[in-house]
Nucleic acid binder design. Structure first.
Lengths: 182, 182
DNA sequence: TTGAGTTTGTTCGATACTGAACAAATTAAA
DNA sequence: TTTAATTTGTTCAGTATCGAACAAACTCAA
């Protein structure tokens, strides 16, 4: 990616998450974002159609990172940085625990609907790749699609519950909780 | 200044002073600077003719800040930030004490010749503006030019001596030392 | 409801930056 | 000295960003 694109993109993401740590998504204006990101208005809209797409992009960035660390050839520059563990689920919990870029604020926010939607959508793709890990638990009656949807929503709910309890359990423990129920 | 120019300029300055804190001016290559600054080669040369001009620019930036805080309307964005005291000399000593952007490395470096030259040149302009503070000390025999040169070099030597002694004396004390001898 | 102020999203000419290539100068090693 | 490798400084077509303006949509108090 062109150096300028990468810089603008990172600047906008960083400004966005900084603002998210202070106020809710709905109360953040594009004007505030571009001011904090120190980029022009036209630049913002060259990258993101709307504020919602920015949020979507942030989620994509998170899951890109998760996907990539799976493939082990972590070459491209991503705003999320860590040493990826074996389990993708543990990996995700760890990122939430680290509260990378205040991502948790998005989950526990009053207006988390949009984020949850993206979260869910991205997660489904991830779960599909790891379906084999749950294959033997799947009851024969249910369809695969339903099974994927079930595992995904269970994961989302586990995360929500965990965040609501201020993430007092360790990422390892909550991962085991999740694996135990599905 | 155009947002892009300002950003590139700041990035290059910051990369430069970071490198200066690790190695001497002569051992720093333009390649290293642009890598750390994360800008293209052509961009560097669009801003600075050579590495020497970069150093010159850094000095200018420091003295611009000093001059500006004198005029009290500190509007434009400068890489040096502080609350300016009454005495410009104290102000300068304070910046050295803070070691803003490793500026001291430049003074105590083996190859400080070039920097000292710029330092001296910039300082002369500053001293000229404050000549009235030393006017009653000037012997009648000596010319004004000589007097300026004398005060300037005395200040430079005071700074060098102070830095050499690891700046153990407070900025206030060393300022008084300086004012006492001239 | 009205009107003033804010925010959104778009437009466009001007400009800075990119990336890649290149010859020339410098440095280091053989 | 000769050679290889590094570094310098320049060039240029392609692209992203700038800044400033603008209409349209929205907000909210009067």
């Amino acid at each position: 990616m062109d150096r300028r694109k990468r810089k603008s993109r990172e600047a906008i993401f960083n400004a966005f998450v900084n603002l998210l740590s202070k106020k809710s998504f709905d109360n953040i204006t594009v004007g505030e974002i571009i001011e904090q990101a120190d980029v022009g208005r036209a630049t913002f809209y060259a990258h993101f159609e709307t504020k919602e797409f920015l949020l979507k992009g942030l989620c994509a960035e998170l899951f890109d990172h998760i996907f990539e660390s799976e493939l082990k050839n972590n070459t491209h520059r991503n705003i999320f940085q860590c040493d990826a563990p074996n389990s993708v689920f543990l990996h995700l919990f760890q990122h939430f625990k680290k509260n990378d870029n205040n991502i948790c604020k998005l989950l526990s926010s009053e207006n988390n609907g949009l984020f949850l939607k993206y979260f869910n959508d991205s997660l489904i793709k991830l779960i599909k790749n790891h379906l084999h890990e749950f294959q033997n638990q799947k009851p024969d009656i249910v369809s695969e699609d339903f099974w994927i949807s079930y595992v995904t929503s269970t994961f989302v709910n586990t995360v929500l519950w965990w965040v609501e309890k201020d993430m007092q359990l360790s990422p390892e423990t909550i991962t085991n909780y999740f694996l135990a129920v599905v």
